[in-house]
Amino acid sequence: MLDLFPSREAGRFGRRLKRARGAKIPVSVLTGFLGAGKTTLLRRFLAKPEGEGTAVVINEFGSVGIDDALMRASSDDVTLLGNGCLCCNTRSDLQNALRNLVAERAQGRLPQFRRIVIETSGLADPGPILQTFATDRALGSEFHVEVVLAVVDAVGGLDTLAWSAEARKQVILADRLVVTKSDLAEPQAVEQLARRLRALNPRAAVHSAVDGDLDPRFMLESDAPPGAAARTGFVAEAEHSDGILSFVLTEDAPLPWDAFARAMETLIALRGGDLLRVKGLLNVAGCRGPVVVHAVQHLAHPPVELAAWPDRNRTSRLVFITRGITERHVRDLFASVRALTGGSAVTQSS
């Protein structure tokens, strides 16, 4: 389109956005093992002013996730809640449920919800949900996954993480972790759980919630709100079970986009299925703002240039969560592409 109707205002990737989601509907994915306290957390959130206008999609077979007391009217599929919210209890197809929400809102049959919270099944691996937004073009153009939040309970969480691969995956893929029931557990056990969570996901901010009481911004915004526990910082490679690895590559110099894109294309072509999640904020040569990239397995979201950097740090940062692909593999691939194209590529580890 820029060829036909060029614009000096637009960047290489189109209109520069004020935030990664642009104007799309923000989606928070709330995950956590059975009994971890997801529903309590959600109920408390919906009761707060910040929860106003939330559409809740319960992606759980046969569950009743929201207390009846919150409901004020109902139809077959969608239940209207207090506080301008609505609840869709989907038993099969998440894609259809999300499409219907948007279509019915446009037709005036549903309230003008502002965001969606998807409460996943306790047994669910959140990977396929993230992939749904990457693979479904219609959903991808309407929705933006803002936050993946995993809930772990302080009483039984450690045991669950020991025996359940799904629970570990929930923690590993999350942007934020919430520890519940810490008032019911021994301080030692809480500390032990915190250590385990840091080992599984050193990038995620961790917050504790007693009786579901959590800063509502923790559920919504992509940047950690003030007062929330600080991120523990990037580490070169986190140790996971199940062959899952996570690491961060950084680069101080601006990246030539073509070299980066070719390296990513090669990686996706060779091992796309093992790229569980790739997220990054890149300093691309010739771009004014940072470029947000995001890939899930074989699919990469279209890159988005933001209007401005969030702070003075201009370092490119690329987080990988992989199955069996090591940091060294990726670093060598990027270095090779750099050498072959004569450009730079993300090569340093932090």
């Binding site: 104007a23 005036g108 549903l110 309230p111 003008q112 502002r114």
Partner: peptide, 13 residues
Amino acid sequence: QSPLGNGGPITWN
């Protein structure tokens, strides 16, 4: 006020 439906008050983005 908060969104009440199409044709009603709304603040979006």
